[in-house]
């Protein structure tokens, strides 16, 4: 099943930021979003993940198939690394956290409290969470923030393995991960004042 986004207009705080965004993400493929800060990449990703409703357009094939990772990793400081991961595994109905720990080189840290990790280690834990969800579509917002070169390579390997296993990934990133990925620049989709919005029945103008 493909993730199909058609003619999407997304809004931040009631103001449209991107419009007419369409793409298809097939299994095994990755799509990288690019665009300057504030262009609306995060808003687009949140809409695709179902956290906010689109203003116009549809997202199909996303229901219960998306694993979302954003700037905040949802890590509980007082729980250990393994506890953090197994919580998410339980929530998503999975049980095995070992492959995820291994893939992100967290094996030695498994019994450390997450609060004592460095920023990059926390980020790795946040990304390892994707693997225990068992979800096919990864939606990633700036996944490589605070990762060092070696960790970026680990992450790229994890994404490659995920794609090879038939998964797909949609990510906003500025770093070239060395992946076979399509690139979608969102800059041309910046919302302009369209007549459609002005004629809107509820418009205040």
């Amino acid at each position: 099943m493909d993730l199909i986004v058609s003619d999407l207009t997304v809004a931040r705080g009631g103001v449209p930021v991107l419009e007419g965004v369409s793409f298809v993400l097939t299994s095994g493929a990755a799509l990288v979003l690019r665009g300057p800060n504030g262009a609306g990449k995060t808003t687009l990703l949140r809409t695709v993940a179902g956290l906010q409703p689109p203003m116009v357009g549809t997202v199909s094939g996303a229901e219960d198939r998306i694993a979302y990772a954003a700037h905040a990793d949802g890590i509980k400081q007082v729980l250990t690394v393994a506890e953090n991961l197994s919580l998410w595994a339980d929530v998503f109905g999975q049980s095995d956290v070992e492959p995820a720990l291994a893939a992100f080189n967290l094996g030695d840290l498994r019994d450390r409290a997450a609060g004592s990790l460095s920023a990059g280690q926390k980020r790795r834990l946040g990304l390892a969470r994707l693997m225990v969800t068992g979800r096919p579509v990864w939606v990633l917002d700036e996944p490589t923030v605070s990762l060092d070169v070696a960790s970026v390579a680990l992450f790229a390997d994890a994404v490659r393995a995920h794609l090879a296993a038939g998964g797909s990934a949609l990510m906003a990133t500025h770093i070239d991960l060395g992946l076979e990925a399509e690139v979608l620049d969102v800059t041309p989709h910046k919302a302009v004042l369209s007549t459609a919005i002005e004629d809107f029945d509820e418009a205040f103008l």
Binding site: G14, A191, F204
Partner: peptide, 17 residues
């Protein structure tokens, strides 16, 4: 309230242009 909303909508429009 409608006037206040209208004003905010105008400000938002200025930001967009």
């Amino acid at each position: 309230e409608i006037r206040a909303r209208r004003m905010r909508a105008l400000l938002a429009r200025e930001r967009m242009v």
